[in-house]
Amino acid sequence: MVKIVDYKTYQKEDGKEFYALVVQGGIEAVTSQETNRTYLTIKEAKVACTFNEDMCKAAIGTELEGRIERVETEPYQYTNQDTGEVITLNYRNEFISAQEDILRNNVINSEVVA
């Protein structure tokens, strides 16, 4: 289960605006690779939508069936908004709907079947 917690405004190359909803998963315990200590975190992802700004505002607080999954990507630069530090990442967080999760885990790819 994820919850819509915010929305962001973006601009297309043609100048038109569109919106993305910010969704958060539940609290997760993870182990630091540097200190080997456990800490708590929440994964967050942005999901493009066809909503206008009023609809985005109204959607905040809504819960959706699904989860947030880390997906590997080509390396890219990311600037931490709080510290200004620039780091290189090779992943992004992606919202996986409950329906998509069922398909991923239960449908056999035709290439696999002999």
Rank of each mutant, 00 (worst) to 15 (best):
I4A: 07
D6A: 14
T9W: 07
Y10S: 09
Y10E: 10
D14Q: 04
G15F: 06
G15D: 07
K16C: 07
E17N: 14
Y19N: 01
L21Y: 03
G25Q: 02
G26H: 04
I27A: 14
I27R: 15
I27V: 15
A29C: 13
A29F: 03
Q33G: 08
E34V: 11
T38L: 14
T38R: 14
Y39A: 05
T41R: 09
T41Y: 07
I42A: 10
K43F: 15
E44P: 14
E44W: 13
K46S: 03
T50F: 15
T50Q: 15
F51H: 10
E53V: 15
K57P: 06
A59G: 06
I60M: 01
T62F: 12
E63D: 11
L64R: 08
L64T: 06
E65N: 09
G66I: 01
R70I: 14
V71K: 12
V71Q: 12
E72N: 13
T73G: 09
Y76V: 00
Y76F: 04
Y76P: 02
Y76L: 09
N80Q: 11
Q81H: 12
G84Q: 12
T88V: 14
T88A: 00
T88L: 06
L89F: 02
R92Q: 11
R92V: 03
R92H: 12
E94K: 06
E100G: 08
D101A: 11
I102P: 01
R104Y: 11
N109A: 13
S110G: 11
E111W: 08
A114H: 12
